[in-house]
């Protein structure tokens, strides 16, 4: 299982320089990818642009949009951005897409909230055509067939989308047991669709080490996930705060067949990255 690092692009206190420092240090470390979160109505950086900036200061790690609310965006522009990011980064881009559950985000960009599931299907259906040889819209992505597409979500329909249009599934966070259950659905759907091989399976979690950092991180998670109601607390409780918790969590995800686990910092202090690297060493 590969381990990636999430950029704190939804942390209000993260400066531009801070984000780039996270990106640089991740590229040096034992990590395989950089993730970003997407949120419209929040003090957060635009994820695709954040990854573009990260592309400039990294050489090795993959750049993963984990995860973008697709129906908030125009499909052609999204496809062009994705192809550009892939070309600019030398084929390091991964495009994770989901519905996006917050109506306020839809209202803010003027996209209709209703019918978003059907629009998401249409987007997934056409996205790759922009990357084909025949398309007049460039650039050509570096990776053959375009960057890998991951689909996230929890609804039953999610797994049909994974199998139908994507290269894999991106889980939204939770204990290994929950991940394993969703991974099973993704694999079952994949097989039913007669796709060759297996779906990619990505997961994510939050970490913060040290009492003060952990407290601040919980506070942030309760705020960031407030829109989910009672689940915000469950996410905050799942915060990884000790070496033991991290190790067991990684073991659980690896056993469940996770290919790539993105660990997001609960605070923006880049010193947290060193502590994580020590644990993984």
């Amino acid at each position: 299982m590969n381990i990636g690092i999430g950029l704190p692009n939804t942390k209000a206190d993260a400066t531009g320089e801070c984000l780039l420092e996270w990106a640089r240090r991740t590229d040096e470390g034992p990590f395989s990818s950089l993730g970003v979160l997407d949120r419209m109505v929040y003090q957060s950086y635009e994820p695709m642009l954040t990854l573009a900036a990260a592309a400039g200061v990294t050489r090795r790690v993959r750049l993963a949009a984990t995860i973008i609310a697709a129906p908030l965006r125009n499909t052609a522009i999204l496809a062009k951005q994705a192809a550009s990011l892939d070309a600019l980064s030398g084929g390091r881009f991964v495009l994770g897409l989901a519905l996006g559950a917050r109506q306020e985000d839809y209202d803010a960009v003027g996209a209709p909230y209703r019918g978003r599931g059907r629009r998401f299907d249409e987007q997934l259906l056409t996205l790759r055509t922009f990357w084909q040889e025949e398309s007049p819209i460039g650039p050509r992505p570096v990776q053959a067939g375009g960057p890998p597409i991951l689909v996230g979500g929890m609804s039953e329909r999610t797994f049909a989308r994974v199998a139908r249009y994507a290269d894999g599934y991106m889980h939204g966070g939770g204990p290994p047991r929950a991940f394993a259950r969703m991974a099973e659905k993704a694999r079952a759907a994949w097989r039913d669709a007669g796709r060759p091989g297996k779906p990619l399976l990505w997961g994510m979690a939050y970490f913060a080490f040290g009492e003060e950092a952990a407290e601040a991180a919980r506070h942030y998670l309760l705020d960031y996930y407030a829109f989910t109601g009672p689940f915000a607390r469950r996410i905050a409780e799942g915060l990884l705060t000790t070496p033991q918790a991290v190790r067991q969590f990684l073991r659980g995800y690896a056993d469940a067949g996770c290919d790539e686990l993105i660990l997001f910092p609960g605070v923006s202090d880049v010193e947290q990255l060193d502590r994580l690297a020590d644990i993984l060493a």
Binding site: D121, E156, R164, R181, A186, A189, D192
Partner: peptide, 15 residues
């Protein structure tokens, strides 16, 4: 399922 792209499957073990 798969009769059209819009089928609403429920996947899992032993479905």
């Amino acid at each position: 399922g798969q009769t059209t792209p819009n089928s609403r499957p429920v996947y899992g073990r032993n479905y």
